[in-house]
Nucleic acid binder design. Structure first.
Ligand SMILES: [Zn+2]
Length: 872
DNA sequence: CGAGTTTGACCAGCGC
DNA sequence: GCGCTGGTCAAACTCG
């Protein structure tokens, strides 16, 4: 199978900083290697100060990816062995020359296409010849997982190390290397590249440190140019780095690249595990709770907890990052709900000390024996991306095992809750910062980045950050399913005219299109093709009028101008927005059944239901009572979250939920349930003890939050429209019988970190658990936008989706940067057939720090190359 | 320290 | 029976 991934040819000039840096490192590595080889192989001899000891690479060279006319040459073997003394042993005969140079620099829009270098992590220390052989042979086995690597021969390695031509003859290529394998290899190797770079950088830093030490100046910082003197072939000097640093004042780029506490998806694997857990639970309680007398919630909880503990939640607890209640909550049954297991077990924080992340796995996964983050669902496998905590508000109070958060969690200076994308508590931040500093101690762009932060100019200046992911070049919100883009607006290719923000949407096709697709809960707002009922009044609307409805069935876009492709008018089934405050009695609950059935409580409940629609900018409506919010979630069909409140008056069980009307976002729809057994409170009473009361500070905060929310809601609404339009594309793709993850990457008017919606099969890529999503996160401009899409290696179609995303992005960004028309795989190569004839390129594969393995000591290495697209 | 908020998780109802 | 969905709980958190 031909792979468009494998077609390009690349020149190998060394114009990238990465190349130079690696070349520099190579010299160091060589020296170290010599030193190591000259001494004992006893790794205990490695100094304990963390300096890197080098030794020859042990892995085989990768076979180059197959190509038609051109070749990929950037794969090198690199293996870092971690000694028992936790020292890294850097095997550095790696092909530092195998850097593929950057593309035409004179094209200011030319982007550096990055390919990746295969590397082989090894944490087992020096290997005996038998072990080497074993390992190599192991790696030569066919693989299916994402991180599979292939290794070439030692000779090949040597050749590369010597700077020989990197283009292997076609006949040497593995024709059996399928596209999938290519993709897998590339995706996986990103990790390795990163690690390798890191190791190399360590070598550089060590050298610097040594130099500084020699100078006897403890606090001496490496001066400009100092460390690059030995760089023979590299042009990337300290000056250059400084210059790059100057281009990104105050490490803005780093900030941008820093991960929000991005969360991940519910992958097929995790979901499967969750389901398994759910099944277990159901099986367990089938005889008790369901079979017999209905237990109370708590009783059931106790009954089920034991079962659940063993699977999903048990794992999670084992992760050690959330030592709190999550294991077994008193009031709940501790069972594992398939729908709720949004994140894989153990996902809530990375704990390097946890065996989960270290335990050798039996699988064929090359990383299984390393300290990489172990796949929470499939032990032995490794996450391509490091996990990130999802709930800053809940984590690490007791320090966890990660040590990243010691004692009490950092308090937010500004108080209040910081949305999950805030970085404060994310280990990613420290990790990233650490890595960035390590890679670029002078504050410049890490050498593996193709562009210094902020240096990318038109048209690639759309890039928010040069840090690109192997796949999705943005980040997915775990809760909303939204993706936050790294890309700046595209003036040229915007497909959403009129100032509409654009999105990368992983929107789901309608069920009619794919009956097999289950589990998509990507938020009703984004999934416009699953219109449900407008909650109230139920009688005013049919079940749903919208199953094939074109777009904006709920008038999301009504306030966003004529530019939207969606009809501005709200659909008939949604109640016409009330311009003025009014009250109306709900005739019934939103459930049809409840109308006729269910006497007693439900009847009573619904009979006391009252819906109030108020036009208000604020979500907080003073109705004379005091309320305590006890929940919030996104409900299907409404882009705005619904908040649940209880009356705080003792003994009063009145509840209400408040949501902004999707039909008329100006209106707040409040639904009351129950009757107060007390009088209304006066203002003072209400203000007393109320947080949202009085101080200027809080008021300002409130306003700020409101503004943010408004922006957010606008974005969401806009996204809905974009998703709708993208859906049409998906339909076309479906008609064509292709499994196209058709991304519409329109970055026009997009702000940094702006939400992007994915318009492909969300089931396969991102979590489908939006139903229990609460408040969608908003972009924190202050803290940057980068966060990590956690796409598990075994996520179906991840590679395709990832590459598609990359490809689509490039296709949109620059006509000169286009996809390979190799025709296979058909999905992503056909993203833009019109551009298939031009320049061969490759999807970006640059590591995102946030996605990289976390924690030290970290095994391995990473190498990123930047192949130059060449004309065929 | 109490009140309020956030948010992952639990659970029941319902539809397929 | 399974999966989706809305409602709710409650630990962890913030704030006054
Ligand atoms: Zn009350």
């Amino acid at each position: 199978m031909a792979s468009s991934f494998s077609s390009p040819s690349y020149s190998h000039s060394s114009c990238s900083p990465l190349v130079a840096a690696l070349q520099e490192a190579r010299g160091i590595v060589q020296a170290k290697e010599d030193a190591v080889l000259g001494t004992s192989k006893d790794l205990s001899s490695v100094n304990s100060k963390g300096s890197t000891t080098l030794r020859p690479r042990e892995g085989k060279m990768n076979k180059p990816l197959r190509a038609k006319k051109t070749l990929f040459v950037s794969k090198t073997i690199h293996r870092t062995v971690r000694s028992r003394a936790e020292a890294k042993v850097l095997t550095a005969k790696s092909s530092l020359h195998h850097q593929v140079a950057c593309p035409d620099q004179d094209k200011d829009k030319g982007f550096h296409h990055s390919t990746v270098v295969m590397s082989c992590p090894n944490s087992q220390g020096f290997l005996s010849p038998q072990e080497k052989e074993q390992e190599v042979s192991c790696h030569e086995e066919p693989r299916n997982s994402l991180l599979d690597l292939k290794f070439g021969t030692e000779q090949e390695t040597e050749d590369r190390a010597k700077g020989k031509a990197l283009v292997a003859p076609l006949d040497q290529r593995d024709d059996d290397l399928t596209h999938t394998e290519d993709v897998h290899a590339n995706c996986g190797s990103i990790l390795c590249q990163y690690e390798r770079l890191r190791a190399l950088t360590s070598a550089v830093l060590e050298r610097r440190s040594a130099a500084n030490t020699r100078e006897g100046s403890e606090g001496h910082h490496f001066k400009e140019g100092e460390y690059s003197t030995n760089t023979t072939s590299g042009s990337f000097t300290c000056e250059e780095e400084e210059r790059m640093a100057a281009q990104q004042p105050d490490k803005v780029g780093v900030g941008k690249a820093e991960a929000k506490v991005g969360v991940a998806d519910a992958t097929a694997a995790s979901k499967a595990a969750a389901k398994a857990g759910a099944k277990k639970r159901k099986a367990g309680d089938g005889t008790s709770a369901k079979g017999g007398v209905k237990k109370t919630k708590q009783a059931k909880g106790k009954a089920k907890a034991g079962v659940a503990k063993k699977d999903g939640r048990g794992k999670k607890g084992a992760a050690g990052s959330t030592p709190q209640k999550q294991q077994q909550r008193p009031g709940s049954n501790g069972s594992l709900s398939s729908q709720d297991h949004f994140y894989p077990a153990g996902y809530y924080g990375y704990d390097p000390a946890n065996p989960m992340y270290q335990q050798p796995g039996p699988g064929p996964f090359p990383y299984a024996h390393t300290g990489y983050f172990q796949h929470p669902v499939s032990p032995g496998k490794v996450h391509l991306y490091r996990p990130v905590p999802t709930s800053p508000g809940k984590q690490h109070k007791h320090g966890g095992a990660s040590g990243l958060v010691g004692g009490s969690p950092p308090r937010h200076k500004h108080g209040g809750y910081r949305p999950p994308h805030g970085l404060t508590q994310s280990p990613l931040k420290s990790e990233k910062e650490r890595v960035f500093e390590a890679l670029s101690p002078l504050g410049g762009t890490p050498s593996f980045l193709s562009h210094p932060f902020g240096s990318v100019t038109s048209p690639t200046h759309k890039l928010d950050s040069p840090i690109l992911l192997p796949g999705f070049m943005g980040e997915l919100s775990p809760t909303t399913g939204l993706a936050y883009s790294y890309f700046f607006p595209s003036e040229k290719h915007g497909s959403n005219p009129g100032g509409m923000p654009s999105w990368l949407g992983w929107a789901s096709p309608p069920k009619e299109m794919d009956k097999n697709m289950k589990g998509h809960q990507n938020g009703g707002w984004a999934n416009m093709h699953y219109p449900k009922h407008y909650p109230y009044p139920a009688a005013a609307m049919g079940k749903e009028g919208g199953k094939g409805m074109p777009t904006d069935p709920y008038g999301y876009m009504g306030h966003y101008g004529p530019s939207t492709s969606a009809p501005a008018a709200a659909p008939a089934q949604a109640p016409a927005p009330q311009k003025q405050t009014k009250k109306k009695k709900s005739s019934s609950s939103s459930s049809k059944k409840k109308d006729s059935e269910d006497g007693g409580k439900k009847e009573q409940k619904s009979s006391t239901k009252e819906v109030v629609e108020v036009e208000s900018k604020s979500d907080q409506i003073d109705d004379g009572y005091r309320w305590r919010k006890y929940g919030q979630k996104l409900v299907k069909g409404n882009p705005f979250p619904r908040s649940y409140y209880k009356c705080t008056h003792p003994g009063c069980n009145v509840r209400k939920h408040v949501e902004r009307s999707q039909a008329n976002p100006k209106c707040i729809v409040t639904t009351y349930e129950g009757k107060h057994n007390h009088e209304k409170l006066n203002k003072e009473q209400r203000a007393a003890g109320s947080r949202s009361g009085s101080s200027k500070k809080s008021k300002a905060k409130q306003q700020e939050a409101q503004a943010k929310q408004q922006v957010q809601e606008r974005e969401r609404a806009a996204a809905a429209a974009a998703a709708a339009s993208a859906h049409a594309q998906a339909q076309e793709a479906a008609k064509a019988g292709r499994n196209i993850h058709n991304l519409t990457v329109d970055t026009s008017n997009q702000m940094e970190g702006e939400i992007i919606h994915c318009l492909t099969d969300p089931n396969q890529i991102i979590a489908s658990n939006a139903h229990k999503v609460h408040l969608p996160p908003f972009h924190d401009e202050k803290n940057g936008s980068a966060f990590s899409p956690i796409i598990l290696p075994d996520t179906p179609n991840m590679e395709v989706a990832a590459i598609s995303a990359s490809a689509a992005v490039f296709a949109n960004m620059d006509p000169a940067v286009q996809l390979v028309p190799s025709g296979s795989p058909p999905d992503w190569t056909q993203l833009d057939s019109a551009r298939q004839n031009a320049v061969v390129s490759q999807p970006l594969a640059v590591p995102n720090l946030g996605d990289l393995p976390h924690g030290l000591p970290t095994p391995s290495h990473m190498l990123v190359t930047t192949p130059t697209p060449c004309e065929i």
